[in-house]
Amino acid sequence: MTQLKNKNTHSMDKVRSFIAIETNEELESSLNELIEKLERMGFKANWTRTKNIHLTLFFLGDQKMEKIAELAYKIGERVSGFPTFHFNINKIGYFENSSIPKVLWLGIEEEQSLIGLSEEIKKVLSISNLEFKNDIFVPHITVGRVKSNPNHWRELIKTINFDQIRVYVNSIGIYSSELTRKGPIYKKLYTVDFEGGVIING
């Protein structure tokens, strides 16, 4: 049975929130180098801050803290005993619209355990009557939302070599997201550990 390892009192106000997987310091370092390279090529974007980097599983929208606490507990019950696994980040890609790049991202090698984890969480969200985008899960890590781009941008992206990075996963996090003029501020509210247990961070 999932147990709360810490106690805290939360406000009942709604917060913008999402479920995600933490990455690691190796990716943070590589992301900085990648952004510098893209800027030298002429890309301008709202770049992801390295301290904010994560793999989003589900965006929850505005939820009451009471509902988020309940959700953390239910997810903890569902994924208790889920095996530790890893995924590989191995390429850079983009989403485009009318031949204009909109988002640059890092792609993840297909990993069945990652897909399986997202499916387990999706079941909990459905049982909890939470609305979420039920799109096909395409795991990726956002690098930046493009404001302007150089000519021949596709060819430039193809020249970028991204060394594979392995990320190990033994827990997930539920985060709040506060939008500010300087970009979003993320705060981990709960850590749900595969070994059983929900840690209150916020």
Rank of each mutant, 00 (worst) to 15 (best):
158 K>H: 13
142 T>A: 08
125 L>A: 01
151 N>L: 12
113 S>Y: 05
94 Y>I: 09
123 K>L: 07
142 T>D: 10
107 G>T: 14
144 G>Y: 01
144 G>S: 04
106 L>K: 00
161 N>A: 07
108 I>S: 03
91 K>Y: 15
87 F>Y: 15
134 N>Q: 11
95 F>D: 05
141 I>S: 04
159 T>H: 06
98 S>F: 15
127 I>C: 03
102 K>P: 02
144 G>E: 01
146 V>C: 01
121 I>E: 01
111 E>G: 03
97 N>S: 13
152 H>K: 13
86 H>G: 07
99 S>G: 03
114 L>R: 02
104 L>S: 05
159 T>E: 15
151 N>M: 09
113 S>E: 11
112 Q>S: 13
104 L>W: 02
141 I>H: 03
116 G>Y: 03
97 N>R: 14
156 L>K: 15
157 I>L: 15
157 I>V: 15
158 K>E: 15
87 F>N: 11
141 I>P: 01
121 I>G: 00
139 P>Q: 08
136 I>T: 14
115 I>K: 04
118 S>K: 13
135 D>A: 01
120 E>R: 10
106 L>Q: 00
108 I>N: 02
137 F>L: 01
160 I>C: 10
147 K>I: 10
117 L>Y: 09
99 S>P: 01
117 L>M: 12
161 N>I: 08
122 K>D: 00
150 P>Y: 11
156 L>I: 12
124 V>C: 04
100 I>Y: 13
150 P>K: 08
136 I>G: 04
98 S>Q: 13
125 L>C: 01
104 L>H: 03
106 L>V: 05
139 P>F: 05
159 T>A: 06
121 I>N: 00
